Every structure is written in structure tokens, then in C-alpha cells.
Amino acid sequence: MSENANWYVVHTYSGHENKVKANIEKIVENRGMEDVILEVSVPTEEVTEVKNGKKKTRQKKIFPGYVIVKMFMTDESWYIVRNTRGVTGFVGPGSKPIPLTNEEVRKMGIEKKILVIDIEINDSIRVISGPFETFVGHVEDINMERQSLKVLISMFGRETPVELEFSQVEKI
């Protein structure tokens, strides 16, 4: 077993993603394998649609027909996931699953690291990375959900609003 669990992509029957997720979670719980199969995810995004003049918000699957599983790859964990009702197989050549790279996991937004900052509105900050590095400004708005700040930076003699991630700034 490797020291870190990896994310694997599992192909399912279309429309059965949530059932597969529930089935895997139930099997893991029944067999006491919470330390081998750590997390099962069906990536979704919130979509707002306007129909008949009414706004409706719903969850839309980002990758229909796929479930993402974080697990340690063992013969037993492979067997359990592969033989879950609704699963057609792992993504990878033949029967050998290929884990997602850290870059792929980050881009897909599966594993979001929540940063906590001690910055408040009207605080002065310095930009420490990105195209506005070394600029100084003050915080106008904080968006915890998107992990970003709206900062007014003095550029070319006028205040310019810029959106920055928490990791790009430090408090002065």
C-alpha cells in the first residue's frame, strides 16, 4: 500500500452516479473499510436556469457517467468498487486503474482546501504572488465561498478593483 490515497475515476451507467456512490459507501460501512476507501464523490455544479420566466437553481453533474473515488488501491478495494452494482469499470488501460494526478484533482475542484484568513474589510494587504505582486491595497469585499478578496489597488494614479485568491495576499 502506498502512503497516500489516490483519486480514481470509476465509469458507471449514465444516470446511476448517485446510486453507485450510495452503494459503495454502504459496502464500505458494512465491511468496515473506511480506512481503505476514504471518499466517494459525484462532482456537481450549481446551475441557474430561467424557464417560463422563473429562475430555478439545480445541481448538474460535471462528469455524467463517472464517480470519483479516493482510496488505497488494494485487491480487495479494487474488487469491491469494480463489482458494485452500476459500475462498468475503472478508467485506465485494461483492468489497471490509473490514479488522477494532483494537478487533475486540483483543476477538477474535487478536493478543495479551505483557507482561513485573519483579514477583514478595510484591512491593508500586500500582494505576494501573481501579476500584481508587490502591490499594496485595501480589502473591499471577502468571498469565503470562492476563497477570494476584492481589493482596491492603486494603479496608474487611480484605485482599481482586483479579485485575488486568499493565497495571493498577506496582511500588512
Results as ranks from 00 to 15, higher is better:
M1T: 09
E3L: 13
E3P: 05
V10Y: 00
T12V: 00
Y13E: 04
Y13W: 08
G15V: 11
N18A: 11
K19N: 11
K19L: 11
K21F: 02
A22F: 06
I24G: 05
I27C: 05
I27P: 03
V28P: 09
N30E: 15
G32C: 05
E34H: 14
D35F: 02
E39Y: 09
E39K: 14
V40T: 07
V40S: 04
T48D: 08
K54R: 15
K55L: 10
K55G: 06
K56C: 05
K60F: 01
K60W: 01
K61H: 08
I62M: 12
F63V: 10
G65F: 04
G65T: 07
G65Q: 09
V67W: 01
V69K: 01
K70G: 02
F72S: 11
M73P: 06
T74I: 05
S77G: 10
W78Y: 15
I80K: 02
R85K: 14
G86D: 08
G86N: 14
T88A: 04
G89F: 05
F90Y: 03
G92F: 01
G92L: 02
P93C: 09
I98R: 05
N102H: 09
E103P: 01
E104P: 04
K107R: 10
G109A: 06
G109H: 02
G109T: 07
I110L: 07
K112L: 12
I117R: 00
D118H: 13
I119H: 05
I121K: 12
I121H: 08
I121D: 10
S124P: 03
I125R: 09
R126F: 03
S129Q: 01
G130A: 06
E133F: 06
E133M: 13
T134Y: 13
D141T: 08
I142G: 04
R146I: 04
R146S: 12
S148C: 12
L152N: 13
I153C: 07
S154E: 15
M155Y: 15
R158D: 05
R158M: 12
E159R: 14
T160V: 10
T160Q: 12
T160S: 07
V162K: 01
E163Q: 10
E163S: 13
L164N: 09
F166W: 06
V169W: 07
K171I: 00
K171L: 00
I172P: 00
I172A: 06
